[in-house]
Simulated scan of single mutants.
Amino acid sequence: MATRIRPSSKRCAVIGGSGFLGRHLVERLVEKGYSVAVFDISQRYQVPGVTFHQGDLCDKQALLKVLKDVSLVFHCASPSPACDDRQLFWKVNVEGTRTVIQACQEAGVQKLILTSSASVVFEGTDIKNGKEDLPYAKRPIDYYTETKIHQEKVVLEACSKEKDFLTVAIRPHGIFGPRDPQLVPILVDTARKGKMKFIIGDGTNLVDFTYVENVVHGHILAAEHLKADSPLCGKAYHITNDEPIRFWDFMSQVLIGLGYDAPRYHLPYSLVYGIAMLLWMITCLLRPLVNIKPTFTPMRVALAGTHHYYSCWRAKQDMGYQPVVKLQEAIARTVASYPHLRKEELPFLGQSEAFCISFGCVFSEIRVD
């Protein structure tokens, strides 16, 4: 017998709904007949029928106004992983999330779906077909990951069948797609500056890249399957395209699709990692005297030169997840959505100049989360 759906089950709120993932999620929820309210620090678009509320994530009273008569909340607000402000990460990802939980419980919200990250288990070494039972990273790769670990723990521990408040965490990895303000625009900018000529390592390391529509699909499936008698309660789930691809092959396909040359010269991973470690140590020694924010770090080298892909078996078993858009189609759609980023005629960089630029900065701005 089908479970009876509560009258308010399609009234939802998307916290962080003005962001890249949030906007795609909002649009899909509307298509599926949900009544949607968005809470974010700013409003960047309009969707007919969607109400927007601007406010601070740590303001519980502002949240309570939005969550009145809402049964389902998606929490996907977070500073960009490229940010270097630890206090901001802690305020939004940890303190803000605690406030969200309190507001949800006071407002009678029944389900909270968190956008977490697969990087919560990544420490800079190979992960192949990683499952959700991997331990949290003891040495998180950055402030973003450190606070996402705290955030996920807080959300999953708040799950309570007795209080009729159920939670689940979705762990996507390498989200990309149309309107992405990070991966593709930064990749193109890096190529235009002559920094994408070199491959770190032998180029065979496999990584998960996940099309944004598949991430949205995973979130909605989690919301629809999260019930008191389901295995989702208080659990984390990897959501990817389930098609690991060589890191540098993915980058090359995007670059070639937009008219740029693919990286072709190899640099030994151990050499690049060693240089990055040396630069990081020098930065630490100089920090009392000079405030330096390095972009060429050991962990960013690790992201570009190690295997890190994850199993979706649990999501397939517990909520019937299957990617709705295959990887090659996703790449083609993404490239087609950025006609304004296609290659223009640029001044020629000599080989030696390009090497100097690339070696010091290769892949320094791009972060695969």
Rank of each mutant, 00 (worst) to 15 (best):
W280P: 04
W280R: 03
M281W: 15
M281D: 15
M281A: 15
M281H: 15
I282F: 14
T283F: 00
T283R: 09
C284E: 07
L285Y: 11
L285M: 13
L285I: 14
L286Q: 05
L286W: 05
L286Y: 05
L286H: 08
R287V: 07
L289Y: 12
L289M: 11
L289F: 15
V290Q: 11
V290R: 06
N291E: 13
N291R: 14
I292W: 14
I292L: 15
K293M: 04
K293A: 12
P294Q: 12
P294E: 07
P294K: 06
P294S: 12
P294L: 12
T295V: 03
T295Y: 06
T297R: 07
P298G: 10
P298Q: 05
M299H: 12
M299G: 03
R300D: 00
V301F: 08
V301D: 12
V301Q: 01
V301H: 05
L303R: 06
L303N: 02
L303E: 02
L303V: 07
A304Q: 12
A304S: 15
T306C: 03
H307L: 08
Y309H: 15
Y310E: 03
Y310V: 13
S311V: 07
S311A: 11
S311L: 09
S311P: 03
C312K: 03
W313M: 06
W313E: 13
R314T: 01
R314K: 13
R314L: 10
A315T: 04
A315C: 02
A315M: 02
K316S: 11
